[in-house]
Write a protein that binds this DNA or RNA. Structure first.
Lengths: 117, 117
DNA sequence: CAGAATCCAATACGATACTG
DNA sequence: CAGTATCGTATTGGATTCTG
């Protein structure tokens, strides 16, 4: 989706499984590592770390280590990261409207033979 | 990007490497297999076939076998497939505006040590 | 708390060769 | 022309365990 528009071969992880969800989680303000693990049910710390690192590298988020006893780390969207909310909204609108149609077509294709009876 | 908006775990190939490009190629009307291979420079027949099949299954395109000597096959966007052009345009606009910024940030991260001299 | 290390599975993508 | 068959590689995501 994104690579189609650019002429780079670089794997932008924007289309990955977790990047958009993380952006949504950060939409309301900075969140800590553990505050991301909870709403992103199913993500493992390894994958969360990897994804956050690549997003930080791409200047989509910032990583801040605060002083404190078990030093908390917060992640926050950058201005660049916030611009992604616009195309994401367009994609979400598409999915909300057309995804059921697509999935119905898929089921009809897969399973006229394997349909429930 | 799309899966983030839905609640399915199904791998929609909308975010794949080729699906958006194929949609763009079909935007101007039906195209034949070999007419897709050319502009999509680098795709192998295997991958093109796989991608077209999955798009057909998802009702994004239709596959039509015509009568003729070496029977030509044409692929065309469905109405559902055309709706994808809207979010794709939003993503392309984002990339056109912000991708250079992102890539600059990436370079700055990777290579202050590996910078050219 | 916020991760790092290690190992593993699934998938996407690709190169090459062949065919009705 | 429009694929199919086979094989191999690269990347992604995940499970588990451990640590400053």
């Amino acid at each position: 989706m994104f690579t189609a528009c650019s002429h780079t071969a670089s794997p932008l992880r924007l289309g990955g499984k977790w990047t958009p969800k993380i952006i949504r989680c950060l939409e309301g303000g900075p969140r800590r590592f553990s505050e991301l693990e909870v709403p992103l049910r199913g993500i493992t710390p390894k994958v969360l770390t990897e994804t956050l690192r690549s997003m930080e590298r791409d200047a989509l988020i910032t990583r801040t280590v605060h002083v404190g006893a078990p030093a908390p780390v917060t992640y926050a969207l950058t201005a660049l990261g916030r611009t992604l909310l616009v195309p994401m909204a367009a994609c979400c609108a598409w999915a909300a409207e057309h995804l059921p149609t697509l999935l119905d077509a898929r089921d009809a294709h897969e399973g006229p033979a394997a349909a429930p009876r």
